[in-house]
Lab assay of single mutants.
Amino acid sequence: MAMNGTITTWFKDKGFGFIKDENGDNRYFHVIKVANPDLIKKDAAVTFEPTTNNKGLSAYAVKVVPL
């Protein structure tokens, strides 16, 4: 089920960042999981599918909501 969130941290040079989800949890995401990576920036609103990996909470099918 899709969730909403906000990008809180973005490491462009490393290709990953973190999203604060609607429950207040931080989720890892990688640029290859983003549909529109050219719009990635700190504080951008996103929708995504929540999941977990071996390191904890993460996100896939991430879409940055255009302003």
Rank of each mutant, 00 (worst) to 15 (best):
M1D: 10
M1Y: 11
A2E: 13
A2Q: 14
N4S: 11
N4L: 10
N4M: 12
G5L: 03
G5P: 00
G5Q: 01
T6Y: 12
T6H: 11
T6R: 13
T6C: 12
I7C: 03
I7N: 01
T9P: 01
T9M: 14
W10N: 01
W10S: 01
F11R: 05
F11I: 07
F11L: 07
F11V: 06
K12A: 12
K12E: 11
D13M: 10
K14W: 11
K14S: 08
K14Q: 09
G15P: 01
F16C: 05
G17D: 00
G17E: 01
G17Y: 02
F18T: 06
F18R: 03
F18L: 05
F18H: 03
I19R: 00
I19S: 00
I19G: 00
K20E: 07
D21W: 02
E22C: 11
G24W: 03
D25P: 01
D25V: 07
N26A: 09
R27Y: 11
R27K: 00
Y28V: 05
F29R: 00
F29T: 01
F29N: 00
H30E: 11
H30M: 06
H30F: 08
H30R: 07
V31W: 10
V31K: 14
I32E: 14
I32G: 15
K33A: 15
V34R: 03
V34C: 11
A35S: 12
A35G: 08
N36M: 05
P37C: 06
D38K: 11
D38W: 15
L39Y: 10
L39H: 10
L39V: 06
L39Q: 13
I40K: 00
I40Q: 01
K41A: 12
K42D: 04
K42A: 07
D43R: 11
D43E: 08
D43I: 04
A44H: 04
A44G: 05
A45R: 14
V46Y: 02
V46W: 01
V46P: 00
T47R: 09
F48A: 00
F48P: 00
F48T: 00
E49F: 15
E49L: 15
P50V: 04
T51C: 14
T51Q: 11
T52K: 13
T52D: 07
T52L: 09
N53Q: 07
N53R: 10
K55I: 10
K55W: 15
G56N: 06
L57Q: 05
S58Q: 11
S58H: 06
A59Q: 02
A59D: 03
A59S: 06
A61W: 09
A61V: 06
V62Q: 01
V62C: 03
V62A: 01
V62I: 14
V62R: 00
V62H: 00
V64G: 02
V64W: 02
V65M: 12
V65S: 08
L67G: 13
L67N: 13
L67R: 13
